[in-house]
Design a protein around this nucleic acid. Structure first.
Length: 197
DNA sequence: GGTAGGATAAGCT
DNA sequence: GCTTATCCTACCA
């Protein structure tokens, strides 16, 4: 299922199997409206994390901690965590409540507010503005404040754009994980020059 | 072009 | 202690 019209993605979009949500998120837009600044980018790279049965997921074996609690929540909410002690990474929670599955947003093509992004990022080139899960959170000012927040309304929301062309989807193993790294759960837009690698 | 090392915090064994 | 769903800089080619 893809939402047939433009606009914020509805809850039902997220309450589906994680791999379908991951693939359908490619080409959609992540937008934040924070401190009066609007920034947005087109999603070009994601990874699926399949919960209790996935050794690379934070929720492997259904282990619930303070950090990953929002992964057990409702579909369409955010799971934001700190990575390597210094970066924020954002996931979209999928499937049913209690099913701790999510999609990690790994790269965006900057669309709106590039000047704000550049300032937040420390004046980097467009190539590295949003190409990487930590980078895009910094560029859009996403932090732990947004953990558990709904993603179908402001200030952080996911939108299906009016001109949502078909995406040529590439598949590969996941990046940066050591366990189950070869599972084909990374999805990306083959046409994009702005992937994380 | 490529890669090694460091920053830094939370979870795991 | 050690590892980790990362990124940046410095250095070498």
């Amino acid at each position: 299922m893809q939402a047939p019209t433009a606009g914020p993605l509805p809850l039902q979009f997220f309450a589906r199997d994680t791999i379908s949500v991951a693939r359908d998120l490619l080409g959609c837009v992540l937008e934040t409206t924070l401190a009066g600044k609007i920034t947005a980018g087109r999603i070009v790279e994601v990874e699926a994390y399949l919960g209790a049965a996935d050794p690379a997921a934070h929720t492997y074996r259904n282990r619930k901690t303070e950090r990953n609690a929002s992964m057990f929540g409702q579909a369409g909410t955010a799971y934001v965590y700190r990575s390597y002690g210094m970066h924020w990474c954002m996931n979209v929670v999928t499937e049913r409540r209690g099913q701790p599955t999510a999609v990690l947003i790994r790269a965006l093509e900057p669309l709106v507010g590039l000047d704000h992004m550049a300032i937040r990022r420390g004046l980097r080139k467009e190539r590295t503005l949003c190409a990487g899960p930590g980078r895009l959170c910094q560029a859009l000012a996403i932090t732990r404040q947004h953990d558990g927040r709904r993603l179908y309304r402001k200030p952080v929301r996911l939108i299906r754009p009016a001109q949502h062309g078909s995406v040529d989807i590439g598949v590969s193993g996941r990046i940066g994980v050591s366990k189950a790294a070869d599972w084909p759960l990374r999805f990306y837009d083959r046409g994009s020059p702005l992937l994380s690698r």
